[in-house]
Computed example of a mutant assay.
Amino acid sequence: MHTEADSCINEWEAFCDELKKSGREILQAGTDMDEVTRADGLRYLGRLMRGGVEKFVEYGDPADPMAYKIYHEKIKWGFDNPDSIYNMATISGDRDYVLTGNRGTVNYFNISTMAMGVDGRAAITSFINDTDMTFDENGNFTLAISSTPKDGDCLLMSPDSNAFMIRQTFNNRAMEKEVEATMRCTSPGAGNGALEVDAVVDNFRKAGKFFTKTGKTFLDLTHRLMNHVNEMPEADPVYMKAMGGDPNYAYFWSSFHVEPGQALLIHLPRVPACDAWNLCLYNYWLESLDFHKATVIINKQNAVLNPDGSLTMVVSMEDPGVANWLNTCGHTWGNIMMRWTKPEEVVAPIPELVQLDSVDWESKLKKWV
């Protein structure tokens, strides 16, 4: 006779079996990489598992939405942005919500709803910039989120929406105050707070599928980027839209490969006015390198421009003794992403691989011709 206890045991075993099978497939993709990348990969599996459980099991109730930080120093995947905070909540397009809070002093933020799958892809279903919202003299705001129009500021989502996000982008995380917000569901039928076995079983299934499918999505992207080693082309806007990329960003990306004694120089002939920009290093698994331990990101706040207004960044294993060094943290292989936020002009980065013992810094620390 089937019991609820059996369903819980069976789901736990199925969840563990999926982690075992998919984890092996993900790690096998990195077996030819260096030791530090293989170590990253094992840690990455733990982060993917934790990310899936947090998203679907801990924060998976659309009747009780909580805007938690989906990425931070210890959980990240899929080209996370260390200069951003992503507050995400589970919602349902057939329910109404109210978001109240204070905008803080963050340089730029937006709020969106999405139709998000378990494979890391997300179609934006509604979107509002901070500049289009109403704030009182203290920076407080109220925003309705619904599939039907409401009075005041309203984020009008489509019925298939299942995720909500506040995306905040900082120039100086230490000095700017983040958005503080609380979300509540105003639709009836929230229940009495008791967990239901069927709901938890379903959420564990989603967490397992997230582990498998999100892992595959970003592994496929890594392989795609390895067709552009040390090149920095512009990211395909259609692809970025399908992944839930910020419509106010322009993205450039590439794999990088630098051996000891080499450096990848990334040059901007000019830095246009913009809300924000950054360039960040990532490992093979598309996690930002450990930004709390080393300088792996250059942005509008900390970049040192050349005397003529151009900018030269240096990606290498060893400190070259010049400004704008990005530390690969022992990685010879990895990935790079550059983001422009609302730029007056999109300037493409120019990469060049050089030998550190013979590079002509006088010519490289000015506009390249």
Rank of each mutant, 00 (worst) to 15 (best):
T37P: 09
G60N: 11
L27P: 14
K241P: 12
E196V: 05
I336S: 03
L265I: 07
G330N: 09
D64Y: 10
Y71E: 05
V354K: 03
D275L: 12
M157E: 14
D96F: 07
L281I: 09
G46Q: 08
F218K: 01
E4A: 05
I75M: 09
A294Q: 11
P233T: 14
V200I: 15
G245S: 10
R224P: 00
D6H: 14
V314A: 06
N138S: 07
A294F: 05
L143R: 00
D17M: 08
Y59S: 08
L356W: 15
F135P: 08
N192M: 13
R173W: 10
W361F: 07
N102R: 10
E73A: 13
L156E: 10
M133Q: 12
A242D: 10
D236K: 11
V346H: 07
E362H: 02
L99H: 09
D246G: 04
C185V: 06
V322E: 06
Y59M: 10
F291E: 12
R103K: 15
E25R: 14
D160H: 09
D136K: 03
D290H: 10
F210K: 01
M133N: 09
A190K: 14
Q301Y: 14
N278M: 09
T37W: 00
C154D: 12
E54G: 00
L156C: 06
H292W: 08
K216L: 11
N162A: 09
V359K: 01
E58W: 01
Y68N: 02
L27Q: 14
S161V: 09
L286K: 00
E18R: 12
V200W: 04
L99R: 02
E362M: 01
R270G: 01
A207V: 04
F164R: 12
I26G: 01
E11F: 03
T212A: 15
G93S: 11
P159T: 02
R339Y: 08
D96S: 09
E137A: 13
P320Q: 03
H267I: 00
T214G: 01
D64L: 05
I70V: 15
V296T: 15
E54W: 01
Q355W: 01
T131R: 13
C16N: 11
A276W: 03
G321Y: 07
A29L: 04
S363C: 04
